[in-house]
């Protein structure tokens, strides 16, 4: 449907107003890059949307040098995330991934929070943030909850948020040495994303896009058998970007290249 149904708009000035407004048929709205197409297709039919773009509390990027973390507001756009000097300094892999999300229009309007809360599997940020060990702050009028990314994203298009909650921010530890993110993106969305943190002792492998939600394994360095079990055990999606066999093959090839192992 080319024409969106008529719907209400609630413009919240601050977080409390927004928290009071969101609900079952009042959908939080920031960039609209996921919500608006979903409404166009009739998949979401809110009575009103609650605009979060003017809520300052959701727009910060703050560094805690002592704690070694960066806290990123949920309404920060991909473009701001990728261009921010603090993010580039402390979270270079995240900044690079954000700079390649979707297309220029999506990066200019789409937000970190929208990306995580829509929980589209074929996405980059969830995978990178899970690999980084980020913590999400979720709020309702009643208080705050702190969740790991794999506690926030519980399935394809499925989060543990209740309808009265808003994702406020993610707090991300500074990037560890040995981190990389690689993706195969033949179509508009990624086919496969792989975040690695490789040290002399340990291989941390996080796989996204081809899985229902980002999936992480921590292995001793050199544990090729464990790695093979992890890769073989992944349930990979079958869609237009390719069958599971294809995705597993591409994943294996990338891991062999990146970890210096051979078959």
């Amino acid at each position: 449907m080319a024409v969106l149904p008529e719907l209400g708009l609630v413009r919240s000035a601050d977080l409390d107003e927004a928290l009071a407004a969101v609900g079952y048929d009042h959908a939080p709205y920031a960039g609209g890059t996921e919500l608006v197409p979903a409404m166009g297709l009739g998949l979401r039919r809110p009575v009103a949307i609650v605009d979060l773009k003017r809520v300052e509390a959701l727009k910060g990027i703050e560094v805690d040098a002592e704690g070694g973390t960066v806290t990123i507001g949920a309404a920060v756009t991909h473009r701001r995330l990728s261009d921010h000097p603090d993010v580039q300094e402390h979270l270079p892999t995240l900044a690079a991934a954000a700079s390649r999300v979707g297309n220029a229009r999506v990066r200019s309007t789409g937000t970190v929070g929208g990306n995580l809360c829509f929980a589209e599997p074929r996405s980059d940020l969830g995978c990178v943030l899970l690999a980084l060990g980020a913590t999400a702050e979720v709020r309702s009028a009643g208080g705050a909850r702190f969740l790991r990314i794999d506690e926030l994203i519980v399935g394809a298009f499925e989060t543990s948020l209740t309808e009265n909650e808003i994702l406020v921010s993610v707090t991300v530890p500074f990037e560890p040495p040995g981190m990389s993110y690689w993706k195969l993106q033949s179509y508009e969305r990624p086919t496969l994303g792989v975040a690695l943190v490789v040290t002399a002792e340990q291989w941390e492998v996080t796989v996204g896009a081809a899985t229902e939600r980002p999936t992480r394994a921590v292995l001793a360095a050199g544990d090729t058998a464990g790695l093979a079990d992890f890769v073989d055990g992944l349930e990979l999606s079958d869609d237009m970007t390719g069958p599971p066999d294809y995705k597993r093959s591409v994943l294996r090839a990338h891991l062999e290249r990146a970890l210096g192992t051979t078959r």
Binding site: L184, S186, T191, T241, G242, P243, Y246, S249, V250
Partner: peptide, 8 residues
């Protein structure tokens, strides 16, 4: 000749 088809 999409990537999965070429892979095949």
């Amino acid at each position: 000749l999409t990537p999965p088809r070429v892979w095949s």
